[in-house]
């Protein structure tokens, strides 16, 4: 299904951010992407804050997946 495809792709992209495989992304992981992605520190911080729905400082796979689904215009829950 499309939902499964989105989750599969999300898993790949999530792993690019969560290099140690912790199971979550924190702000340090996000900062490390600066230099790898054409986004500024501030933009990466904003992206993190906007994906971190509950604002607890940990970006879970579910939150990431939701954000990616939103980017694709899908409602993945």
């Amino acid at each position: 299904s499309i939902e499964e495809m989105v989750k599969e792709k999300s898993r790949e992209l999530f792993a690019l951010c969560d290099k140690e495989g912790k199971g979550f992304i924190n702000k340090v992981d996000m900062q490390r992407l600066h230099g790898e992605l054409p986004l500024s520190d501030e933009q990466l911080r904003d992206v993190f804050d906007s994906l971190d729905n509950d604002g607890n400082g940990f970006l879970t796979f579910e939150e990431f997946c939701e954000g990616f689904g939103g980017f694709l215009g899908l409602n993945v829950s």
Partner: peptide, 29 residues
Amino acid sequence: KPDVSKTGASNERMLANFFNSLLNKKPGS
């Protein structure tokens, strides 16, 4: 005063930029 719809749109653009960059990064990285 802040234009909420504009802020939402720019936020969306920023996320799109982020996910696009990640998608482009995938091969070879």
